[in-house]
Design a binder for these strands. Structure first.
Lengths: 224, 224
DNA sequence: TAGATTGTTAATCGATTAACAATC
DNA sequence: TAGATTGTTAATCGATTAACAATC
């Protein structure tokens, strides 16, 4: 199915399409044009059609797109039907909050195991997920299929644990540590959740808005 | 200071620079070149110099950049020294997990109030933040400076609460609801934390990697 | 001074938008 | 059929990279 190299920008938009299509389905909408979809997502119809055309022909001239059918296609493109396995590394506040509030299953992932160093946690279950000792991590990786490690360890442990994971064949890390894991020549796939990056971007946009307002009222002042 | 319109891509990289500079400071590094910074972040030196040049001249020929000085500049560009006020709207699992684990103060924000509908929460304190009734939200906004609303309400409430917020002058929303808040002509600044979008992007990259491997071993098979 | 590295201009590359024939 | 809307090709726009004079 996938032929040409698809750009990051396109890939980042796919989950948004999926979410919007789910929302449309909930609201009983079963058909949509690229124009209308663009309206609702703040994108141009051209861009939407270009994006989809990277993966195939999912629409119909004069009609638009069938919402459930398109949803199925995008889910498949994203790998939601591959039954990926994930493990949680670090069952502290962040790890627990994540498992409490986020449904891995809803997005096609099985959370199969968790790992921590705290003796009182080891051997217990959390939301049905068994918690093992960090000492068993490497063994577990070698004897089970693990597609993604969800990294929720404390800051100090981020680099050494990442090293252990990658040296033992883990190819993808979902990183919640707010530590920069970028390594010059590493082939590991890293996806970051950086709350602070997100808030600081917002902070920039708010600052910009305030500056514009200030400049505007300064001009008005001058004119009066 | 800010003259030309700065692109989104640049703005999204600024928090990463900040984080890396903090990390360098912790490790006692006080000076860095665009080349070395690029190495550590997976960017070209050219790009880094271009990015900084949107805001001023922060380096020195033949020397590079002074880490703490550059950190101060970027913090200021991002608005970290403006003392922004934020309110938390919705004190459920996600809201509580956020306040438990994320330090607003570290990034220059004051969390001044929280709002919920649950009677048992109203009037209590959470990490020193007073929880008020949703009924008092509009009043509060009008009588206090609020720069950002942190939206942590349940899915169903996302759209109506957003409407209430924007109609009463809130200009920026940090959105944790996983609901698409994009409105065709809204001037509201929205920054999203979409866990599922992030995981699904990762899912795509892992799928791609697996497909490549499969294709490779199929070719090897054929040749043998 | 010689070497290093910046800030900036120009060149390249890639992504978005526009346009339109194909067709449901 | 007539109208609508796709998929795709070409045109435009913007972002990244390369190159280099300026200078610490």
């Amino acid at each position: 199915m996938k032929r040409v190299k698809v750009s990051n920008n396109v890939i980042r938009r796919l989950p948004r399409y999926l979410r919007k299509l789910d929302e449309l389905t909930e609201n009983g909408v079963s058909r949509i044009s690229s124009f209308e979809l663009g309206q609702q997502l703040g994108l141009t119809p051209s861009q939407i059609r270009q994006d989809f055309s990277c993966f195939g022909e999912f629409g119909q001239q004069g009609y638009g797109y069938n919402v459930p059918a398109l949803r199925t296609q995008i889910a498949s493109i994203l790998g939601m039907d591959r039954g990926f396995n994930a493990i949680l590394v670090g069952v502290g506040n962040i790890g627990r909050a994540l498992v409490d509030n986020f449904s891995f299953a809803e997005w096609g992932f099985n959370l199969t195991a968790a790992f921590d160093i705290k003796p009182e946690l080891i051997g217990t279950n959390f939301h049905g997920v068994p918690i093992y000792s960090n000492d068993e991590l490497v063994d577990y990786i070698h004897s089970n299929r693990v597609d993604v490690a969800v990294l929720c360890v404390p800051k100090e442990a981020a680099i050494p644990v990442t090293k252990a994971l990658t040296e033992n064949g883990i190819e993808a890390i979902w990183n919640f540590t707010n530590v920069e894991l970028t390594e010059p020549n590493s082939p590991t796939i890293v996806e970051n959740i950086h709350f602070s990056d997100s808030l600081l971007s917002l902070s920039y946009y708010v600052s910009e808005r305030l500056d514009e307002k200030a400049a505007k009222s300064a001009r008005a002042e001058k004119q009066a």
